[in-house]
């Protein structure tokens, strides 16, 4: 099974590039930029990766991102991710970046996006990985701040396929960002949104109806609302599910409890992704393998409705 998953061509649709910053690279970049890290060693960083919920993860995530200051830093981080997933036969990526995490520290928007974009271009040419870039707004910040960030992004609109919404979900419903998403759509950008990870199914409805999201990132709590499941199935709105992340952040106690297979068996367009792989214990192959083992998911078509290889929309 491991060999089958390893060689399977894959696409990754839910990946925060800042969440790929491995501790070794974090230390390397921190050292060359003269930025101290609140940990003594790589081992100490890894030991800190025991999270109780989304917020406990985000506190460490933002601390790690502080080392990123220069265009080359963003290039190196992105290139390291692309090399890793190339080795896992990932053929296409659609990745998120969080400009506000950096612009709020004084790093120019252009520095951030140019480093990421350059690595994506190199990966397309040298590794054959096609790509799209999605700019996320931090939902714990204001709707006005999202609009300001969008204005900064517009000169680089050709490098971005769409906008998304991430960070602390509970207490920050999608409706807070209606104006920013309206403006983004008016500029021709597509929209996606994190919803239904820790937040309630109502947030998924809002993401669909107010933000006109083309995909829902996570969305696993949709199973609590039958009408919502019916809509997601009828409209075949993709869910970008992240199995290891959901267990690591205690959305589910163990993989066996995860809703992924139920979503697929119900005919929803669920996909497998890694979210923040440096923090959650694995990239694409590790997510597929953990889901396969935890959910007793078959590899190739059988009498069961879903299989890893051919899991598909109806």
């Amino acid at each position: 099974m491991e060999q089958f998953i390893q060689g399977m061509p894959k696409a990754e649709l839910h990946l925060h590039i800042e969440g790929t910053l491995e501790p070794e690279l974090m230390f390397e970049i921190g050292e060359r930029n003269g930025v101290s890290i609140p940990f003594a060693s790589v081992e100490e960083v890894r030991k800190a990766y025991e999270f109780s919920d989304l917020q406990s993860f985000l506190d460490i995530y933002y601390a790690g991102a502080n080392v990123l200051l220069k265009e080359q830093d963003f290039y190196d981080m992105t290139w390291a991710y692309l090399q890793r997933v190339h080795a896992q036969n990932v053929r296409h990526v659609e990745i998120f970046f969080d400009p506000q995490t950096h612009t709020d520290r004084g790093v120019p928007f252009e520095t951030v996006i140019t480093g990421i974009h350059r690595a994506l271009q190199d990966a397309e040419q040298q590794l054959g990985i096609s790509n799209k870039l999605i700019m996320c707004f931090l939902r714990h910040l204001s709707g006005e701040a999202a609009l300001e960030t969008l204005e900064q992004a517009l000169p680089f609109k050709d490098w971005i396929i769409g906008v998304g919404l991430d960070s602390s979900e509970v207490g920050h419903p999608p409706q807070k960002f209606t104006a920013a998403f309206d403006r983004a759509r008016a500029e021709g950008l597509l929209t996606v949104a994190h919803a239904g990870e820790e937040g309630p199914p109502e947030y998924i409805w809002e993401a669909l109806d107010l933000l006109h999201a083309k995909r829902i990132d996570h969305g696993v709590r949709c199973v609590e609302d039958e009408k919502l499941v019916e809509r997601l199935r009828n409209e075949q709105i993709p869910l970008t599910v992240c199995p290891l992340s959901n267990v690591k952040l205690c959305v589910y106690d163990r993989m066996a409890d995860h809703s992924l297979k139920r979503l697929l068996d119900a005919g929803l367009c669920a996909t497998v992704n890694s979210d923040d792989p440096a923090y959650f214990g694995g990239y694409m192959n590790e997510n597929f393998l953990a889901a396969q083992q935890g959910l007793d998911w078959c590899a190739t078509p059988s009498r069961r409705r879903s299989s890893i290889g051919r899991a598909r929309m109806r």
Binding site: A11, T300, R312
Partner: peptide
Amino acid sequence: MRNSFEATFLDRSRKDALMKELDDYVATAA
């Protein structure tokens, strides 16, 4: 996984090419 390729923001021809690559892989592995 076919869903992942279908759910991308790629154009139809690139989606189809990647899905064929996947189908060929699964058929060979089956």
